[in-house]
């Protein structure tokens, strides 16, 4: 009995020792030298591994940030400036602050605005649908509504509204990682400046058809009438291929184009409702000064706010 016990304990101890020695040498032989700063940088990353920075996950971001001579062109859209500041501190370099961005859906072809012309019966994937045909409405530029953006979003920030069949972005959750932009085969989604107090203007349409054709397909389509281009005091709006585009770096949020647009293709987001519709629209600063109580009210002017 004792002998059995003794032998068992001895054999196992010996085995353990031998294996430990082997492990020790293997670990030394195959050791990978790594910059300790990589771990430090990784520790301040959000850890979403969304790939929004263009690298394969947060670890790859950290590796590249450490390797690169400066942080130019390296930006974590999820963590934003706060995380970039921490990364810069760890690495002892300077970082330029970037304006926060948000994903914007540039299509307003809801079921109501854009009547369906066919019934899609294939796989619920925009990619498959786009390869098959121009879409189940008269507009071949608009949203296909199968939710590839929703599937691509690692933060649950973009969802298809079952009523309008259009994606809606939750700007609180959106980190502007750009996954939805890549996923959308129609190129509808754009990353735009979040804007002061989250207020921003954009043309919610991608239709490049002539005005009449576009209008026939969708009542909220941009018809390329150029009224917005003419009215814009800052030269922020250009109309190309029958489609208007607002350059958010130039836009001063005066909302003159919004008032002018005959099809309400231009959207103004998070502006407080205007008390009286005056002949000359007040500037954004004036509006903000007049109503300091309501800055947090997130009201989409043209769209019904979800829930």
């Amino acid at each position: 009995m004792t002998n059995t016990l003794l032998f068992t304990v001895l054999t196992l101890t010996l085995l353990g020792l031998v294996l430990a020695v082997i492990l020790f040498f293997v670990a030394r032989r195959f050791r990978v030298e790594e910059d300790p700063r990589i771990d430090e940088v990784e520790s301040v990353m959000p850890g979403a591994n969304c790939g929004g920075c263009g690298f394969a996950g947060c670890r790859a971001f950290a590796e590249n940030a450490v390797k690169a001579p400066s942080l130019d062109g390296i930006f974590c859209p999820v963590g934003g400036n706060a995380v970039m500041k921490k990364v810069a501190m760890k690495l002892g370099v300077e970082v330029v602050e970037k304006a926060p961005m948000v994903a914007v859906v540039r299509c307003n072809g809801s079921c109501e605005n854009r009547p369906r012309t066919s019934v899609y019966d294939g796989t619920a994937s925009c990619k498959v649908k786009n390869a098959l045909y121009s879409g189940d409405t008269g507009c071949r530029y608009g949203c296909l509504g199968c939710g590839d953006c929703e599937k691509a979003c690692p933060f649950g920030a973009i969802r298809i509204n079952p009523e309008t069949l259009l994606p809606e972005v939750d700007e609180e959750l959106c980190t502007a990682c750009g996954n939805c932009v890549k996923a959308c085969p129609k190129g509808i989604i754009e990353l735009r400046n979040k804007g002061p107090k989250n207020r921003r203007m954009f043309v919610s349409c991608m239709n490049k058809d002539k005005g009449g054709v576009a209008r026939k397909a969708c009542s909220a389509a941009c018809i390329g009438c150029r009224k917005c281009e003419k009215v814009c005091p800052f030269g922020a709006i250009t109309v190309e291929d029958n489609l208007s585009y607002i350059d958010f770096t130039k836009c001063k949020l005066c909302r003159k184009c919004f008032d002018e647009c005959p099809t309400q293709a231009i959207h103004a987001v998070n502006f407080p409702p205007r008390p009286v519709k005056s002949a000359s629209a007040p500037s954004a600063e004036a509006v903000a000064a007049k109503e300091p109580v309501l800055p947090k009210a997130e009201t989409t002017v043209t769209e019904k706010k979800e829930e």
């Binding site: 066919s118 294939g122 045909y133």
Partner: peptide, 8 residues
């Protein structure tokens, strides 16, 4: 009515 469209 609207035609059904699907891949082959």
């Amino acid at each position: 009515r609207n035609l059904i469209i699907s891949p082959s």
